[in-house]
């Protein structure tokens, strides 16, 4: 009796979970399906779900018209560069806050977070003018710098929460063993923090990849990452749904695949120390 109730419960929760999962995933699935339709079928009413004439011509058109590879490369460089740079600045800072804290450490951390809450738009004008005057508009370097600064507080915070979980004893043991600070960081702290570093790296790569304020406002073509590439399909070309879908699929495919493969790492990173 008890077993039958349990197995019924499994079926109910399985059914419900799959239903809601499917609903949440539907927009993405629909987009991918549409990208393989002809423009005519994309608009068809009632819509066709699987039985349509599958075609890949949209992808060819998109690459031919707006050079997907160029923008994807920009996305990789900008997101990767800004994340690595941010890690480089954040690791020493997080080490300092976790292992040599002072009375003001918490205040500094909160202040850093509060800079993240300052709306980018509040400083859009001066940043735009500075970038214009220094010739940084539409350059990869310019985007790397701004995305790095924008995500720095989050990177520091995440690393801090990871470092704090590393027992101080182990670092002290290394110190007793005669390790210098550099060796302590390289041989002991970094290997132990690799899971944390990985999820920080991933999360910030994704955030930077999808960042759509500075990239839209500070780049147009040469340095434009995929966010800008896709925004160019908004209107009036947006009426070509199949091509829009193909472009969209191309824009999110790399990051969604990366995200799926690393989701376990990522989810741990996402909790920001909220879950012990």
């Amino acid at each position: 009796m008890a077993r039958r109730v349990t197995s019924r419960r499994v079926w109910v929760s399985t059914g419900a979970a799959w239903f809601f999962g499917f609903v949440i995933f539907l927009p993405i699935l629909w987009m991918v399906l549409t990208s393989f339709k002809t423009e005519l079928e994309a608009f068809a009413m009632p819509p066709t779900f699987l039985f349509f004439h599958w075609t890949t011509e949209n992808y060819a058109t998109v690459q031919g018209r707006s050079d997907y590879v160029h923008h994807a490369l920009n996305s990789i460089i900008v997101a990767g560069g800004s994340t690595l740079l941010a890690l480089l600045i954040a690791i020493p800072a997080a080490w300092s806050m976790a292992f040599a804290p002072s009375k003001r450490t918490k205040d500094i951390l909160l202040w850093m977070l509060s800079t993240k809450m300052m709306p980018s738009v509040g400083v859009l004008v001066p940043i735009y003018l500075i970038y214009r005057d220094f010739g940084l508009l539409d350059t990869r370097g310019g985007l790397v710098a701004i995305l790095c600064l924008g995500n720095l507080p989050i990177v520091i915070w995440m690393l801090f929460t990871y470092f704090k979980e590393i027992p101080k004893d182990i670092l002290e043991a290394a110190r007793m063993d005669g390790a210098t600070i550099g060796r302590e960081l390289i041989y002991v702290l970094t290997p132990m923090a690799i899971p944390g570093l990985a999820s920080t790296l991933l999360l910030n790569f994704i955030l930077a990849w999808n960042e759509a304020f500075w990239t839209l406002n500070l780049s147009t073509l040469d340095a434009a990452p995929l966010t800008v590439f896709i925004a160019s399909y908004s209107s009036p070309e947006g009426l070509f749904w199949a091509k829009l879908s193909a472009a969209s699929t191309l824009a999110i495919a790399p990051i969604i695949i990366l995200g799926w493969f690393t989701q376990r790492q990522l989810v741990r990173g996402l909790t920001f120390g909220a879950v012990k």
């Binding site: 182990i170 043991a173 110190r175 007793m176 063993d177 005669g178 390790a179 290997p191």
Partner: peptide, 20 residues
């Protein structure tokens, strides 16, 4: 003198072994 240069070694309560 920093701990590393005092020529002492220590066994910690938590053992503090390097897990990796």
């Amino acid at each position: 003198v920093p701990p590393a240069k005092r020529g002492l070694s220590m066994v910690f309560q938590s053992y503090a072994l390097y897990p990796h």
